[in-house]
Design a protein around this nucleic acid. Structure first.
Lengths: 154, 154
DNA sequence: TGCAATGGTAAACCAGCTTTACTAATTTGT
DNA sequence: ACAAATTAGTAAAGCTGGTTTACCATTGCA
């Protein structure tokens, strides 16, 4: 069916076939995420993933409000709420009611959570080391800089 | 609670706070995806997104087997099956049984599907033009090259 | 005192897949 | 020639990492 109708356009297909940049971004994220999860599992952190490490990295030592965490992580408070729930189940954080505002929840580290944060940080460094081995120090930095520039221009 | 226990470690937090590369990839993909969906909607293609464009770009003019599409798109045949279903509902593709192998399905363009493919291609070019405006021609190419190198090294 | 703003929760959905488990048709090995 | 393995595809659930819509409880301000 398509043959006769579209044969004039066949030369366009070469252009269509080129992998678009969005697809490269998707695969890159998944690559990083998969590497991270494997490493976290090996360090004994099951059931948690990259998203949780991001939350913990935004937690102050003396505890942080959920809404503040949401702003810092650049996601909705509902999303943070879900991550907090999972981290709480894993025993990595605790919640207390803010005495100065009883609507608010203060999220704090536990000892296990502090260990998770350090392990997550190590994982991050390991993966970036792997990337450095592929691209070299300068090009990894270039990649990060270009992505940052692209996202900040939005 | 955390205050006394972890105060020695406070200097480590600076390192923890650095946005990891995986997060940059995630946001970059979402940025591309959002731009694409907005543009596709404006061209009259509702209910379809980036993933569908990727499938269509791998369709031969005379039709292609579902399994072949999956290999070219680098996803599972289940994933392709889902996309095919949605494209079929939208009237962009048709399916026929392969007469030489009755297990197999041949996926072909419709006229509307061909139009969608051309529109999707235009959208891709528009977004990359927007990125070019931010990074410049050379740096956009560098970004693409670095991502490709990273993914091929896997 | 009343009502909007703020902190948080609940449930459904979106995007783009994968894993697990299966059926039907075809090919291979003996 | 016929059973076993392989291949094409479907079905349903789950995963990663969120968002939107709708809501309740508390607080702040006029």
């Amino acid at each position: 069916m398509a043959n006769e109708k579209f044969s004039d356009d066949i030369n366009q297909l070469d252009d269509f076939r080129q992998q678009h940049t969005g697809r490269l971004f998707l695969y890159a994220h998944r690559d990083f995420s998969e590497r991270a999860i494997v490493k976290l599992r090996r360090l004994g952190h099951s059931s948690l993933s990259l998203a949780h490490t991001n939350l913990l990295a935004n937690l102050d030592l003396d505890g942080t409000r959920l809404t503040t965490l949401a702003e810092r992580s650049r996601v909705t408070k509902q999303a943070i709420g879900q991550l907090v729930l999972e981290l709480e189940k894993a025993g990595y954080i605790g919640r207390t009611i803010d005495p100065t505002d009883r609507r608010a929840t203060i999220v704090t580290f536990t000892v296990a959570g502090w260990q998770f944060l350090q392990d997550a940080n190590q994982v991050k460094h390991e993966i970036e080391e792997e990337y450095r081995a592929i691209l070299g120090e300068a090009d990894l930095q270039t990649l990060r800089d270009l992505l940052t520039k692209l996202l900040e221009a939005k």
